[in-house]
Each structure stands twice: as structure tokens, then as C-alpha cells.
Nucleic acid binder design. Structure first.
Lengths: 235, 235
DNA sequence: TTGACATTGATTGTTAACAATTCGTCAATC
DNA sequence: GATTGACGAATTGTTAACAATCAATGTCAA
């Protein structure tokens, strides 16, 4: 089913168990199978992964440090629930990073990397044909991480992965239609632009793609942020 | 002496003790008072901060997740020692993020922010006049974080802070002369370009500044990375 | 019925003892 | 004299019991 080990903890020297826990939660968020505000209780995770409480807590701390999970003191861990402002922030950050990254890739092409990206595109197509919803969603997100990995900068890859994962949460919260989230052939155009070595075109393709995703959101819909009566009635 | 709470854990809901630990280590690295490969033993940190082992371990984990500290299994925590390749990576990432960030700031000026930056410049000047070496180093680094904070994007600010701190380690390892690290008036030029609303000029000033820092390095000098026999004899 | 209050149960946070690993020292041997 | 081996001390990793906090339920009085 899934094969690429997308590990967040990938470059870090974490023990194998924790890598698994983090990866699984990451993937679940990517596939939108873990909705925002879902409680991640220690006991449940210990059970699921057959692991002691210590590992679970460390994993949750790392996930929290990346904005994937919120840690409420004495109340446990919850899947993060980005606000509209945070959503803007994430897209702004992606706009600031990804176009330049792809431009640099186009101006210094590696056949090996191009081949890998094309392979990824094929997997996306296959998933789309088979209508495997969660697989489609995950692969769409991972595409951007693959781009970053292709460039070969570990720090930037880590940043992009974090932003992409948070984007998954955002799309789940603010996406207007469950289906057209998918970018018709945006990804293909990006890869082709890179392959032809046209940096400007590649950068523009990425920008357009991000705008496209952002246009599929309705940030006024407040499925997130439960009423928060305290603040409303504060005056 | 120091006043700005530069906290890494700033936006995160960590408990106060951990914030202090992380901040202090962060600052010490920024000021190059903690050299790469310095051992950070749990016992010593517990003593220093009057805190239990748990807090120390959590703090070290978070620092490790940002590349400031290396965690060797069963052998403890050490201040990270970036390789030449990682140094390149950090500068590449900064080149990819900071110019765009500053351009965006210039194109959407906030008097409040400009005022804050000018205040920071004054503190830098003061430190330089008094020849407070570690203060100069720290403020020079923090300037870039202040830029990011000025833009107001928490995610980008976090990324920049991480990169700036790692830059401190890199300069300490690969810097050629202990003194000329300081950027004569680069920072001032950046602020002025922003203040006049000239995005291109501001972006260029940042790029030049980063190149300037990078030119002060000699990545061939191998003060870092002890022989590493394991890898040499691996074949 | 509603509101405040106390009690209970469950969950998280902390501590301290225990286990496992590594590092340094010292002696014995080649 | 250098190298190997074993022993002991120190450090890290793990576990399990304990303490503290919070959510929920139920009770009682207005």
C-alpha cells in the first residue's frame, strides 16, 4: 500500500519505535484520517504501538514541536487545529520557500531526481484511477516533500514536510469540496518545467499550484476553533 | 545585559523551566560560549538549573530536533558540530528564505517594526563600542530573528531562528578570524532598504550580507569531525 | 429546573529506584 | 613499552509506583 518511508524523524537519530509512532501519526494526518482536535491519549497510543509511555510522550513532544499536535497541560495531546491566521501563515511560508527551491532544482537538474519524480507522478495517477482517496491525498502532499528531497537540502526538506503536513490539516478544515482538492495536472507541469531546466517556469508553476490549493479553501467557515465562549463573553 | 527573550520555545506551550533551559543553551550557542562537541551531561544541567532529570531530557530532545544538539544513544547530548556540507546547507536555506522575507517586509512596511529594528541596531552599535564580544555576536544573530519576527510569520520565524543558531556554530567552527565576523554596516543597510520600501534593494542587501558572512569561512579547515575511523574503515 | 458543590474516576505529570551501557583505570600479558 | 582484557565508576535509558490535575457524575439546596 504505502511504501516510501516518509519519516519525519528520518534524519534524526531517534530510536526505531519512536520513528514508527511519529511516522504513523504523520501519515494519518497526511491522509486526513486523523481529524483536527482528535485526542491522542497516551494509553491508546501505548496500546496501539505496544510501547511504553515514555516513547509515546517523546513522540508527542516532537510532533508538538512541529505544530502537528497541540499539547495542553494536564489535558493531553490533540491533533492540531490551525486557525485561519495559521492557515495563511503556512501558505505564506510555502510561497516563500517552495518556488525558490524548485527554481534551484531546475537550474541544476539531476536525471536521477527527475526519474524519481516521474515515478511518483505515476503512483499518483494510479491512486487517482483507483479512487483510493486517502492514498491520493497522501501522495499529493508527499509530492512536495519529494521535490524538497530532490533538491537535497535536509533542513529545507524538514521545513517543507512540516508545512505540507499542516496543509493537510488546513485542507481538511477549510476545504470546500471533498473531491476537487486534487490538482488536475499541476504536479506534472512542475516536473516538466524542472526537466526542461526552465527555472522561472517551474517557480511560477509551483506558485500557481499553491494559489490553486489556497483557492479551494474557505477560511471563513469555522469548523475549527470551537466557539470559545470564554473569549466571546469576556467583555 | 541581555533582555530580549529570544526563546525558541517561545510560541510553544512548554513549561517555564524548560523554556529557561532551552533559552539559556540557545543563547550560549549564539554567543559562542558553548563550543561544538561540548558535552551536555544531564547531571550538570540538572545542577545548573535546579531541575529534575525529566525537564533536562525534554529540553535536550527539543534542541536536538532543531539540529542544535546531537543526541548519541547511551552516550549523552553534545553541542552539534556541523560538517562543511551542513554548513553549505544552512546557508543555502537562509539564501532561500531570508531575501524573500525581507522583500515582503519592504513591500508592506510597518513603522512599528522599523522602529524596533532601529532600536536593535543601536544596541548592536553600543555593544560594538564597548567591545563586548559575546554580546556583539549574539545581537548580530538575533538581528535576523528580529527581521523574521517583524514580518510576523511564526513558522518562518522558527525556521530562521534555527538556521541562525546553527550559523553561530558554523562561524565558530569555520570562521577565519575571530574579529571581522561582524558585518560592518550590513544590518543598517538592510533596515534602510526596508524603510524606503525598496524590496529588491532589501533582498539584495540580505543576499550580499549572507555572502559576506559565508566568505568569512574556510570550510576546508577541519576543526570539526574527528577522524571517524568507523566510516573510513567501513569498506 | 437550575445552579453550585463535592466526590469519583480517569488521565496526565513527576519522581525515584532499577537496569543497561559506556568510559576510564589498572593490571596482566605478549 | 604497547595492547588486550577485565573490573569498577559514572552516565544514560527504562520502568513502575506515586502525586496532581482535570472532567464527569451525582447530590443538595434554592
Amino acid at each position: 500500500m504505502r511504501q516510501g518511508n516518509l519519516s519525519t524523524a528520518g534524519e534524526m537519530n531517534a530510536d526505531p519505535d519512536e520513528k514508527i509512532i511519529i511516522d504513523r501519526i504523520y501519515s494519518a494526518v497526511m491522509e486526513q484520517r486523523l481529524a483536527p482536535r482528535t485526542k491522542l491519549s497516551e494509553a491508546a497510543l501505548c496500546e496501539s504501538f505496544g510501547v511504553g509511555r515514555m516513547r509515546v510522550r517523546r513522540s508527542l513532544l516532537l510532533l508538538a514541536s512541529q505544530g502537528i499536535v497541540d499539547l495542553h497541560s494536564n489535558r493531553g495531546a490533540y491533533v492540531a487545529c490551525p486557525s485561519a491566521a495559521e492557515a495563511d501563515e503556512v501558505f505564506e511560508a510555502r510561497m516563500m520557500i517552495e518556488p525558490g527551491l524548485v527554481r534551484a532544482m531546475a537550474e541544476n537538474i539531476s536525471d536521477e531526481v527527475i526519474k524519481g519524480l516521474r515515478r511518483h507522478l505515476k503512483r499518483e495517477d494510479a491512486a487517482r484511477k483507483e479512487r483510493e482517496r486517502s492514498e491520493i491525498i497522501r501522495l499529493s502532499g508527499e509530492f512536495h516533500v519529494e521535490l524538497a528531497k530532490g533538491h537535497g537540502n535536509a533542513a529545507l526538506t524538514r521545513f517543507v514536510r512540516e508545512l505540507v503536513t499542516r496543509t493537510s490539516l488546513i485542507v481538511g478544515l477549510f476545504g470546500v469540496n471533498r473531491e476537487s482538492t486534487c490538482p488536475e495536472n499541476d504536479h506534472g507541469q512542475i516536473v516538466e518545467a524542472i526537466a526542461t531546466g526552465d527555472g522561472n517556469k517551474a517557480a511560477k508553476a509551483v506558485r500557481d499550484h499553491l494559489v490553486h490549493i489556497q483557492n479551494g479553501l474557505d477560511l471563513t467557515s469555522v469548523k475549527n476553533e470551537q466557539p470559545d465562549l470564554a473569549r466571546i463573553l469576556a467583555g
